[in-house]
Amino acid sequence: MKTLQLAWVELKLFLREPLTVVFSLALPLIILFVLGGVFGNEPSGPGEELIYRGVGPMSYYVPAYLALVVASVSVISIPTHLAGNRERGVLKRFHASSIGAWEVAAAELAVAFVLSLASGILLLIAANLVYDFQPADSMLAVFGVFAVLVVGFASFGIFLGAVLPTARAAQAVGMLVWFVMLFLGGAGPPPEVLTDVMRQVADFTPLWHAVLITQEAWLGLDAGLSWLVFGAITIVSAVLALRFFRWE
């Protein structure tokens, strides 16, 4: 109950930052329309080089963007918000009033979930209106994966917010991580066109594994070890976040 109260307050605060809200909601849409406009939705034909894992670009991108939406909220907004609160003494104020680190983390998780969900639904509606793409095998399974992604990326975001000292640093690092993930993590250029080195780097980004497990639920394509890797990233982030959490 007390935990929910902080979460509710944090959510309201987030919605009062119009720029952040617009950014979180609009970014995936912009990318959807730009890349959709460029690539259309024709699968690579027989004899052509295999691209987009053999499905149409939009069928590939829609589940990938769902993963990207979650990553955007958690990797850009959460670290900046947390580090900013530490820098301004808000966290110390909370601490002095016996609010626990768990509560702060749970509040961020709740905010990440609500925002990701809103952003994800908006993305699906927009994609449905404009593009033809393969429907999800099971929307329920996709939602389940989505919830797992929120937990994983939020832990990663809280970890970044816990170790980065200032809001500026958090914003810079968050953006950098986000761009690297966008370009290499499967939600930007199709993975088949990346060089070997790029793909090796991609293996270390949470987004690449998030894209694979979302596509598994959506398109029925095999995700290999990605469940395992994403689970490991989640647990390590969560443990490090609580271990290195600083109130000031």
Binding site: K2, N85, R88, V90
Partner: peptide, 22 residues
Amino acid sequence: LQESALPDRLKVWEAIKLFSSR
């Protein structure tokens, strides 16, 4: 605390409600 603040957009009643629930 000497060096502490609340979020700028937090309303007065929200702050009091949050802290008195402790």
